[in-house]
Design a protein around this nucleic acid. Structure first.
Length: 525
RNA sequence: AGGGGCGUAGCUCAGUGGUAGAGCAGCGGCCUUUUAAGCCGUUGGUCGUGGGUUCGAUCCCCACCGCCCCUACCA
């Protein structure tokens, strides 16, 4: 089936027919090459004109035609391959009548293979002197504009393949993302962690607080949830004696979409037996420093107007963060120790709300009914979160918002939990794991009793049973790879670091009407 | 979900209440070291969709669709 633009599609079909008439195969099966275009640039980029004339290095390359300049009985083109462009020079009296006809029938976007030798043109550009040429695959659709590339955000995400061809930076971002993940694997493998895979479909959506996606298994007649976190399965493995495990995989949360949220996102989650949250913070610091150095080449990472300094990471308790960033106009900041007194927390929240209303900011909701731990968390979000720009460990979270974390020995209202914030975004979340089965069951039961879409409907008794078999003291952490990739590639939307972010389906690509019920607003076809 | 913005040729973008424009791409020519190649000629549009106001709407108004930004939920 032809696609728009029809005239160009038809024209290219015609060109393909002409090429076949020349005796060329339309879609040949393979092509042996000695270099990619990028490989040529790397290998011969420093060779002078004279050196190349002496060596005349023979090469075979393949690539996509991204520029064409005819010159009568000769012509230039650029081939894109391996992320770089190499110029080729095609001369009638070198490639012959048939070869030159083929060259003339090429369109921008075609994939070609060729044989030739390296040389430099009069203007000094490294080029391939083509001696023979063949079509490897036809592009029946035109490329985006050669100078401005593809700009339209929607098109870029829907047709990412064009984005990757037209925008060099996009390719770079995804190469770096792969490098980040590779380095993370190397980091954990080197420390004796075992990479594992745990279920993506869960009978109980546990391990985090989020609204899950639901699916159904026919044979078992079983509703399943796409996992919101792998946590409870990974900790079962710790019980099983796999003392250091990690998993890199997708989580799915049926929540909003924004510059830092995509419904499916990639997380690295690891668990380390006989360690606590201080070890986890140290590990995180080592990991992030190494990543910045490896991927960006420095601990100083440019992020828009910011320079993020990964060489030193601040550590602040949640209570300290609130006190530090308390708005001056809201009166004296509450002292961190006051947060131990519920009435003082409530008073601080009320005081903040007076200030918020006067500044036309969103007030903290539900002060009367919320526990002091929850209020502390809300105060943090309202007062401090956005100011955590430089890499910062925020730690000692209220127990009410941390159902899987172990409490501090000296203060049961706080848990040994931390989050890493960078550029106002939560990048990581880790804690000393709660391993007391009876306390875990109580906390689960409280969650279930509280109810809501974002909370499991039943206690995961198998997990509690696993803890009852004894889980060593353990530290665990989840690290958001998409957001980390944003930071290290200076990307300001999560969609820039996810190859195919979720979009509404195109109307023209929608399923046929017989399997898709008409929209309540009326039929669209 | 609420508020704001955007939607014009395949791509990148101008523009106007009175029959729609450029560059690139395309098509036909010329050109054997060019490079955003150049030169001559040329095709291509239900101006997102549907209503309304108007003698007349791509432009003004309303609704819908899609995308972007902000806010809310959330990592």
């Amino acid at each position: 089936m032809p696609f728009e633009p029809l005239d160009q599609y038809r024209q290219r079909q015609k060109n393909l027919e002409e090429i076949v008439k020349l005796g060329e195969e339309a879609y040949p099966h393979r092509f042996d090459f000695t270099h990619t275009p990028a490989g040529l640039v790397d290998q011969y980029g420093s060779k002078s004109h004279d050196e190349l004339e002496v060596e005349k290095p023979p090469v075979r390359i393949s690539g996509r035609v991204v520029a064409l300049r005819g010159h009568g009985k000769a012509g230039f083109a650029h081939l894109l391959g391996g992320g770089k462009r190499i110029q080729i020079y095609v001369k009638l009296d070198v490639v012959g009548e048939r070869g030159f006809q083929l060259f003339h029938l090429l369109d921008l976007g075609d994939l070609v293979g060729l044989e030739g030798r390296m040389f430099r043109t009069r203007t000094g550009e490294l080029s391939v002197w083509v001696t023979s040429l063949r079509l490897l695959a036809k592009a029946l659709l035109p490329l985006p504009e050669k100078w401005h590339g593809l700009v339209d955000v929607e098109l870029r995400f829907r047709q990412r393949y064009l984005d990757l061809i037209a925008n060099d930076r996009v390719r770079e971002v995804f190469l770096k993302r792969a490098e980040i993940i590779r380095e993370m694997r190397r980091f954990f493998d080197a420390r004796g962690f075992l990479e594992v895979e745990t279920p993506m479909m869960h009978p109980i959506a546990g391990g985090a607080v989020a609204r899950p996606f639901v699916t159904h298994h026919k044979t078992l007649d079983l509703d399943l949830y796409l996992r919101i976190a792998p946590e409870l399965y990974l900790k079962r493995l710790i019980v099983g004696g796999l003392d250091r495990v990690y998993e890199i995989n997708r989580n799915f949360r049926n929540e909003g979409i924004s510059f830092k949220y995509n419904p499916e996102f990639t997380m690295l989650e690891y668990y380390q037996a006989y360690a606590d949250y201080n070890d986890a913070m140290q590990l995180t610091e080592d990991l992030l420093k190494g990543l910045a150095q490896k991927v960006v080449g420095s601990h100083q990472v440019r992020y828009g107007d910011l320079t993020l300094d990964f060489s030193r990471m601040e550590r602040l308790t949640m209570r300290e963060a609130i006190a530090r960033h308390w708005p001056a106009a809201a009166g004296a900041p509450p002292a961190p120790v006051e947060f131990a007194r519920p009435d003082a927390v409530r008073a601080a929240a009320l005081r903040y709300n007076v200030y918020a209303r006067s500044q036309n900011l969103d007030p903290i909701p539900g002060i009367e009914s919320a526990s002091s731990g929850v209020l502390t968390g809300l105060l943090f979000e309202h007062v401090a979160e956005r100011y955590l720009v430089q890499p910062t460990f925020l730690y000692d979270f209220p127990v009410e918002m941390s159902p899987l974390s172990k409490c501090r020995a000296d203060d049961p209202s706080l848990t040994e939990r931390f989050e890493m914030f960078v550029a106002g975004m939560e990048i990581a979340n880790g804690f000393s794991e709660l391993n007391d089965p009876e306390e875990q069951e109580r906390r689960f039961a409280e969650q279930v009793a509280a109810g809501g879409d974002e909370v499991p409907r039943q206690v995961d008794m198998d997990y509690v049973r696993a803890l009852a078999h004894g889980m060593p003291p353990t530290a665990g952490e989840g690290i958001g790879i998409d957001r980390l990739a944003m930071l290290l590639t200076d990307s300001h939307s999560i969609r820039e670091v996810i190859l195919f972010p979720l979009l509404r389906p195109e109307a023209s690509a929608a399923p046929p009407a017989d399997i898709s019920p008409p929209h309540p607003a009326g039929p669209k076809a």
